[in-house]
């Protein structure tokens, strides 16, 4: 992130895609909390309602301009219009801004009891190729070939980011999760790139592990990966990151994420737009809040990040009255936001 604060106000401008469904409500909670926390952020709301240009899903130009100018955005959930364009809007955003790495931390909330506690996992997923290359064809009727594409370049940039991220968050290990016993060339290349890059990061230990074993171990005892930043090809990352959310929270409801590109980064809640409860002041804003915390950290505003994160966690832990219905509590979106604000 190379953005600069406005010299007049001392504030950084961030694009805000409020999103669909519960998006506006949880976005309001974030904004209120940022004001109360005196975070030096000024929002620039942008509309990404998709346009279809030459059959391609496209982000409106003003939104593109805003994000390219600010280099950073916070994003609520977007409903993917079914059966219209070829691509989902999320994929379009990724392609438009070259967001090659998806960072997904999954952390238990102390004081909120689930089947597992002490979960503190960080996973980085390659976001542009692999099994999601979109190259598929019917060879003869009834026979389909789907291509998983692994390239040196894409592997290198995501694994490099994993090493950098490990340094930044002070985790001593990077762990590559792969299946090179079976996909010997494809996953083999991914592993080899990691081994080559490891030489540039003597302070970080590289560990490689077969997917089977990671899945087995993380479900048995997630705590053993608390020193690790895991990095893997697209599909494994997709599955493992959801698995991690299952372990930390039992759902996607609390999970933040970051989409990192060379220039632009977009921070987002991974849950959907929840149309069933939209407009009812029921939605839990925690995932978007924690995404905004990741964003502050990414911008180097760590003090504000820590302050907000702590207030969110202590609010959730304090009592069922301060938890929203998805966590079995009785709080509304706005009363939860107030509980956070009172703890800042």
């Amino acid at each position: 992130y190379t953005g600069k604060a406005d010299p007049a106000t001392g504030k950084y401008t961030v694009s805000f895609i409020e999103g669909d469904g519960v998006g506006p409500e949880i976005s309001k909670a974030v904004k209120d909390i940022f004001v109360a926390a005196k975070a030096p952020i000024q929002w620039e709301t942008c509309d990404v309602s998709p346009l279809f240009i030459n059959g391609l899903t496209t982000i409106p130009q003003p939104a593109q301009d805003s994000i390219n100018k600010n280099l950073i955005a916070l994003k609520g959930p977007l409903a993917t219009p079914i059966g219209k364009g070829h691509r989902s809007l999320n994929l379009t955003l990724r392609k438009t801004f070259g967001l090659f790495a998806n960072v997904r931390p999954a952390k238990s909330v102390e004081g909120y009891k689930t089947a597992y506690d002490n979960v503190d996992l960080v996973l980085i997923r390659e976001n542009t190729e692999g099994e999601y290359s979109g190259i598929e064809h019917v060879i003869v009727p009834g026979v389909v070939q789907s291509i998983k594409l692994i390239t040196q370049d894409a592997s290198e940039r995501v694994i490099r980011y994993a090493f950098e991220y490990a340094r930044a968050v002070e985790r001593p290990k990077v762990m590559v999760v792969h299946k090179s016993t079976i996909q010997r060339l494809a996953d083999g290349l991914f592993v080899k790139v990691a081994q080559d890059l490891a030489k540039e990061y003597p302070d970080i230990e590289l560990q490689t592990e077969i997917l089977d074993k990671t899945v087995l171990n993380v479900v048995k005892d997630p705590a053993q990966y608390k020193d690790v930043v895991a990095v893997c090809p697209n599909l494994y990352g997709d599955i493992l990151s959801d698995l991690n959310s299952g372990l930390s929270a039992g759902s996607l409801g609390l999970t933040p994420s970051a989409n990192i590109g060379h220039q632009v980064s977009i921070f987002e809640a991974v849950h959907g737009s929840a149309p069933d409860i939209a407009g009812q002041n029921k939605a839990n804003p925690t995932a978007l809040l924690l995404s905004s915390v990741m964003m502050l950290n990414h911008m180097g505003l760590t003090e504000h990040a820590d302050k907000i994160e702590k207030a969110v966690f202590t609010a959730i832990a304090s009592s069922p009255e301060n938890r929203t219905a998805d966590l079995g509590g009785s709080a509304s979106t706005s009363s939860f936001a107030e509980a956070v604000i009172s703890r800042l």
Binding site: E131, V144, I147, K148, Q152, I182, L185, A186, L189
Partner: peptide, 21 residues
């Protein structure tokens, strides 16, 4: 995913085929 059909089209670019029938 276990088809074992893979190739390196050019150096640094690998394709791995998943076959479903």
């Amino acid at each position: 995913e276990y088809s074992g059909l893979e190739h390196e089209s050019v150096p640094g670019v690998v394709e791995s085929l998943k076959i479903m029938t």
